[in-house]
Every structure is written in structure tokens, then in C-alpha cells.
Amino acid sequence: MDMRARPYRSVLYIPGSKTRALDKARSMAVDAIIFDLEDAVSVEEKANARQTLATALAEDGYGRRMKIVRINGLDTDWGRADAEAVVAMQPDAVLLPKVNGPADLDALAEITGDLPIWAMMETPLGMLNAAAIAAHPRLAGFVMGTNDLAKDLQCRFRADRLPLMTSLGLCLLAAKAHGVVIVDGVYNAFKDDEGLRAECRQGRDMGMDGKTLIHPAQVEIANAAFAPSEEETDLARRQIAAFEEAERQGQGVAVVDGRIVENLHVATAREILAKAEAIAALASE
């Protein structure tokens, strides 16, 4: 599936140590799962979690959901063993925490080979090196780690996320420049539906591909926010039809709802329809 068409509306963190959660995830309406061996697993459970996750992924049953494994950093006691184990698990990608620069990805790729790498973007140095990280040949996606980033920035929490906008913007520019996926950070108040809805809307308006989630209760809101709306798909169809008709008449521009439609609008319209079709395919499973 084309990377730009594949949906990443909802990207749910699941602890690699929790068998029940790993099983439940097989039936959740999520686009992607981050199987976590890092923050969600205690020190005492690190080795067991690795084996528990390996068993779950061997059994599979996750359908078309994107399977991403977040390992511990290679500078920890568990990182190298995690990376070696992930190769055998054969997920869709491996997620590396606290990526500061391309050298971090080089070190992981020496272990994981051709496996696509996603990067946790959660440090000030990572923000400054976002373009170089996105350009790495193994890099396929960014995950914004806004909690760790806010801690390092010593910024205050604001509903509008203004203190994080420079960081989010730098990563967004880098991701779009190099054609990699970028998913927004988590919303911590998992019982605050309106707050989550507003933050999802903000991320979608910025150009994020989806939202990382910490609780299954957040999935429905994220899926709705990052999916093309009925109005968007209807407009896309009408733009394509009008432009094709204009081309038949030897014109390079069409007009829909009083607005000019050019090649670039048609390209966006086709992406919207492709994403809607991909979402429908996931829902039909």
C-alpha cells in the first residue's frame, strides 16, 4: 500500500509484557500498534516482555494493522537484545526512542538490517536534527514524544500547545520533505474526550498523519479526526470529475464551488480518495 494512502489515524501503545492487552489489540479498530518494550515495561519485566511479545507476534492475528515494536535505547542494558529479538519477530517496523541524529539510526540498522526504522522525536537535539534524521535511508516514520520533549524543554502545559509548536513544526517539515509518516504525540487525559478531539483536530490541521494513543477509549475520536470527512471525499470526487472534463475541453483549469481547481488540487483529491478506500478496507476486516 502507498505510504501516503495507508491510514495511521490511530496508533495505540500496547505494553509488550501484557498478554491480555496483546490479545485484545487483535480486535481493536486501530490503524497501527506500537508494541512497547520501553516505558510501559518495568525493569524487572524487560526480558520477559521480549519473549511475551515474540510469542504474540508469532501467533499474529493483527490483520492489516501496522505492527511497530518500540525497543529500549541502545545505550541501555536491554536495547541490543531488544533489537536482535525484533529481527526475528518480523514486525513492519522498529521504533527507536530518543533519536538525536542519524548516527543513532546507523547503530540500529547495523543490527536490524533492512527492517524499516521509526524514530521517537522527543529531545531538543532531535528537533534540531529532524531533517537529517528524516533523510536517513532506513527511516520510515516519526513518532512525536511530546511528554519527554516538554520535560526537556521545561515548558508549561497549554491546551494550544504553543510552547511545542516550533518542535512540532520542525519535525513536520522534515517528514513532509522526505516523504515519511509523522504521528502526533499522546494526549494524557484519556477521559477528556473534548480535549482529545481538539488536539486531534489541531494535529490534523497541521498535517499530522495520525495520533499516538495511550488508551483504547481514545481510538474512536482519533479515527474520526484523521479520516477524510464525507464533505472532503465528496469535494474530491467533484474536483477530479470537473478537472477531467476541463481537460477534455482543452483547458488546464476547472472551477468547483467557485474555486479554481488545478493539477495540485487533483493530486490532493486523489490522495484523499485513496486514504478513504484504505480505511474502508481496514474496516471491512
Rank of each mutant, 00 (worst) to 15 (best):
V43L: 13
G145W: 04
A40W: 03
T19K: 13
R6I: 14
E38P: 05
A81P: 06
S284A: 07
S284R: 08
A236V: 00
D60T: 08
D31T: 10
L172V: 02
A224S: 14
R138G: 01
V253I: 13
G210V: 11
H178Q: 09
A103T: 11
R26L: 05
M120Q: 05
D209N: 10
H265T: 06
N129Q: 13
D148P: 05
N48S: 11
K18P: 09
R80N: 14
M206E: 03
A174Y: 02
M121R: 07
D184P: 06
L196Y: 03
M28A: 09
V143I: 15
D205L: 09
A131G: 11
V183G: 04
C155Q: 10
A32D: 02
A254V: 02
G141D: 03
L173A: 12
Q90E: 15
A283I: 14
D82S: 12
H215Q: 13
A135Y: 06
I133G: 01
A242W: 00
E122M: 04
R50H: 06
G210I: 11
G250H: 01
S167A: 11
P102A: 06
V186D: 06
R4D: 08
A269Q: 00
G126E: 02
T166W: 15
E122P: 04
L115T: 04
R201C: 12
P102S: 05
A83L: 01
L153H: 05
V30H: 05
E231K: 05
A85I: 01
L53F: 07
L170P: 08
L139D: 09
L74A: 06
V253M: 04
I33Q: 02
R158D: 15
L74G: 02
E44Y: 03
A241H: 02
A236W: 00
A242G: 02
Q249E: 08
M206L: 14
V261L: 00
P7N: 15
R238P: 00
